[in-house]
Design a binder for these strands. Sequence first.
DNA 1: TCGGTTGGTGGACGTATGTTCACTGATGAA
DNA 2: TTCATCAGTGAACATACGTCCACCAACCGA
Lengths: 229, 229
Amino acid sequence: MTARSRSGPEMTAGNDDDELLPRGQRKQRTRDALIDAALQLMNEGRSFNSLGLREITRVAGVVPTSFYRHFKDTNELGLVLVEESGLTLRRMLREARRAGAPVKDMIRRSVRVYKAFVLANRLHFLFVAGERSGGSPVIRSAIRNEVDQFINEMTQDVRHLAIFPNLSPEALRRVCELVVNTMLHAATDVLDLPPGDDALAQAQEDNHVQQVRLIFLGASLWREEIERG
Amino acid sequence: MTARSRSGPEMTAGNDDDELLPRGQRKQRTRDALIDAALQLMNEGRSFNSLGLREITRVAGVVPTSFYRHFKDTNELGLVLVEESGLTLRRMLREARRAGAPVKDMIRRSVRVYKAFVLANRLHFLFVAGERSGGSPVIRSAIRNEVDQFINEMTQDVRHLAIFPNLSPEALRRVCELVVNTMLHAATDVLDLPPGDDALAQAQEDNHVQQVRLIFLGASLWREEIERG
DNA sequence: TCGGTTGGTGGACGTATGTTCACTGATGAA
DNA sequence: TTCATCAGTGAACATACGTCCACCAACCGA
């Protein structure tokens, strides 16, 4: 599976330059339009499994029956969204790996990068954070798998950075799990924050930074044989 | 506002012994039946704002129009649910206060008590954990207020326990916020866990215990002037 | 005892939904 | 050029929804 290429802020199926495209790509276009429509509706405050099939097709600029050419039902579209979001998460990890860990002010810089990434991928984080504990069981468990896998990969990356040589693999994973949970919840804060209020944004960032600092402080001083009791 | 008294696992409006009740109490009965119906539907895996008015009244054993005698719309019922859940949270805090902090094995014991409380109040935690990041904006923000207030009260309680004399009020609140977020997410784990699998439950408990231990370790060693940079 | 108040009923309405079906017109391989 | 394939169409369906209305029966203060 490869990432979709978005064409604009409001994607509908009947674009101007779709006449000259081969059939496969045209199909992919309206498929993308359907997915984007679902994301767009969630961006307006709706939860995924309250979305209707007709509603999605309406926003996508397509007749309801077209939906079935691409998905069996809305749940199947949801699972595709989970997969896409998982790709986004892994892309974040990959970019972080490529950039390397900042040596000075590591945590604050990382939180800033994370926040920027969340805003740049607003819709996916909105979906993940929103449906992770909320919606239909099948989607929830799919998201859980995706996040679990993300935590595993992050654990590997952190291990190679050798920041916490004192931690066993299990303990290190636990630390990563804690950070991921904290930061996924932080994503909701970031996304809910109205833009323009710089002071509030700064206070929020400080809060997130210090929460991670606290976790890292605990992690750096953790001694397996003592704390495990 | 006082807590409702539930009458059974499946509460409907047309109970057997409602003939001899005064009108006010009878009204309260069907109101409770509506609230319980919504909770019951969520317990079956539905998210709140996908619930329909008719659906709720059907489960409550009442005709759809009766709904309007008690709530303006489903959202208003949701806000009542938020308030109820807030009461449950505060009740937990009150009970913990009364029992006092366990001196030995504090964290593990506390996690066990918490887990028991979550299971005993399954529906409220399911609602809070599920709608905290998911559903309609108005309910989400109402829950956020409730949780914020809970964090504040918990901060006061922890302050009086004098566990972290090194922390400023702001830092202590941050620690509580971290613990609450972690434990609210843990509630989802607990509620999703299929019963009977003792080994998995034990592993899950260990995980939660060690996450809190890690936070507490960090908190106990936090030095304001050093870490705030 | 009376009569207003009130919680619950049943029917009806317009509208929205998910799903079906036959159809169309362009695509792309033969 | 021919022709099967197939993404998208439009009409129709049964069903569900939220909301309105008139009505009823029981409660409860007068």
